[in-house]
């Protein structure tokens, strides 16, 4: 008894499609603003006075006071926040307290390395997840399928640092020495030039991603394979390959795409642990270093970048889900 028939959403196609996206972008920007405030306050609440820390335990109170003025730490919190935020909008991410160089320098290198790692991981993860999921669905309830389901459950339950440690033990230290246990990439070079340094960190990210996504693919394919239009295709005498690739997959992939974008967002955020484990020179390991050094401008910059990446991929997931 549906009243809206075939022509339901023909009314104002452009506006009705654009409005939700625009409002999402606006929401996202507000969220980022809130996140930046939180980051700022959290960084300020770290124990210990920055100026004290820089100058060490034997500094004279005068020197500390001088540095505080120099760093702007004597100004009210909100002024400091506005100055920081304004700087970022002008491309000035502040100066690293640890190295004394602009944060943006190490940020660019870290971003490039992390993005490369994530991109390589995703480029392998997404197609693999699709193939594994489809194969498991084809052998539904059979031996292959059951082995897959148990394996994926185990890998989803194991944290990344455990997977990574096991991989290191097998391929880099205890069993064979095929790959480096630590990903050394000189600051000026692209990680692409050091493929062997990429393999283990990427694999550590890929395994749980594949295990999670392929389960979704499996369920989506099974759902589609039981629909009436697939039965119709079978009763039309079409070949199994045509049924799978032309009739089933396009319908099965649609519900997976938003999940895949979310996994991409997690991958960006999740590289922190993996990078630290392999000492891979990305945003994640840089963040860990910055926290250790109480390097406030650096911490703020790295967290804001990771949060923005999250926001960006979530936005994509939302836009795709809406379609």
């Amino acid at each position: 008894m549906a009243v809206g028939d075939v022509t339901e959403d023909r009314g104002y196609p452009l506006m009705s499609r654009l409005m939700p996206v625009l409002s999402k972008v606006l929401q996202g920007l507000l969220t980022l603003l809130a996140v930046s405030l939180l980051i700022f306050l959290a960084a300020r609440s770290l124990r210990g006075d920055v100026a004290n820390m820089i100058l060490g335990p034997h500094a004279l109170p005068d020197q500390v006071e001088q540095l505080r003025v120099q760093l702007g730490l004597n100004q009210p919190l909100w002024t400091q926040y506005i100055n920081w935020l304004g700087g970022i909008l002008h491309g000035d991410w502040g100066t690293s307290l640890a190295s004394g160089r602009p944060v943006s320098e190490s940020l660019v290198i870290g971003l490039r390395n992390s993005a490369t790692l994530s991109a390589v991981a995703l480029a392998v993860m997404l197609p693999t997840a699709l193939v594994v999921g489809v194969v498991a669905a084809q052998y539904r309830d059979g031996l292959v399928d059951r082995i897959f389901l148990i394996t994926s459950m185990i890998f989803n339950a194991v944290p990344e640092f455990v997977t990574g440690t096991i991989l290191v033990a097998i391929f880099a230290t205890t069993v064979v020495h095929w790959l480096p246990a630590v990903s050394f990439i000189p600051p000026g070079d692209s990680p692409i030039s050091y493929p062997s340094a990429l393999i283990l960190p990427a694999t550590t990210i890929i395994i749980p991603g594949v295990m999670y996504l392929s389960r979704l693919v499996r369920v989506a394919v099974i759902d589609v394979m039981t629909t009436e239009y697939i039965q119709t295709a079978v009763l039309k005498g079409l070949s199994p390959a045509r049924i799978l690739f032309l009739h089933a997959l396009p319908n099965a992939i649609a519900p997976i795409i938003p999940a895949a974008s979310l996994v991409a967002a997690f991958t960006i955020g999740g590289v922190v642990v993996v990078e630290y484990l392999f000492a891979y020179p990305g945003v994640g390991s840089a963040l860990v270093d910055a926290v250790t050094n109480r390097d406030l401008p650096a911490i703020q910059a790295y967290v804001l970048v990771i949060a923005s990446a999250y926001f960006f991929f979530n936005l994509i997931a939302d836009a795709l889900a809406r379609k």
Binding site: T227, E228, Y229, I230, Q231, T232, A233, L235, K236, G237, H247, N251
Partner: peptide, 18 residues
């Protein structure tokens, strides 16, 4: 099934691939 015998299902909305 391609040449000899054909089938028409009850609900065309569900039986035609969207």
């Amino acid at each position: 099934r391609r040449n000899l015998v054909a089938y028409v299902a009850q609900d065309p909305g569900a039986a035609l691939n969207p």
